[in-house]
């Protein structure tokens, strides 16, 4: 998430007028941080904990992503919990609630508008 936040700064050259006289011509789409998120989601307990934290979900869904597949993967895994006695996962309520609240707060970013 921090990597994505830092790389996103290149899309906003107007916030750094002392660095860029005009829009930079070397913008590189960052799809790597989405892949990192996807990998991090394989630790489901940690993903459950992170997505239950409203500060984290606010940062996660308040971003623009070059490719949202990694975010979707992380959210999908982190909002699911699989108790040892069950073969299939069930929705993990605290994470689902925090994610949907953040999605409502960042409706424009999620919709890409």
């Amino acid at each position: 998430l921090t990597v994505q936040e830092r790389s996103s700064e290149q899309y906003r050259p107007d916030t750094f007028p002392w660095v860029f006289d005009s829009a930079p011509d070397d913008i590189v789409e960052n799809t790597g941080s989405g892949g990192l998120l996807s990998g991090a989601g394989r630790n489901q307990d940690t993903a459950n904990d992170l997505l239950s934290d409203s500060d984290f979900t606010d940062r996660l869904l308040g971003r623009q992503w070059g490719d949202s597949a990694g975010v979707a993967d992380f959210v999908g895994r982190g909002t699911t919990h699989r108790p040892p006695e069950l073969d299939n996962g069930v929705v993990y309520g605290p994470a689902r609630d925090a994610v949907l609240a953040a999605a409502d707060d960042h409706e424009d970013q999620v919709a890409g508008s």
Binding site: D67, S68, V71, A72, D73, V75, L100, V110
Partner: peptide, 15 residues
Amino acid sequence: VDHPELRDVLDGLRD
């Protein structure tokens, strides 16, 4: 930037 994959997951959670 559109986020179709993310929207699909969120729609699933809302359901």
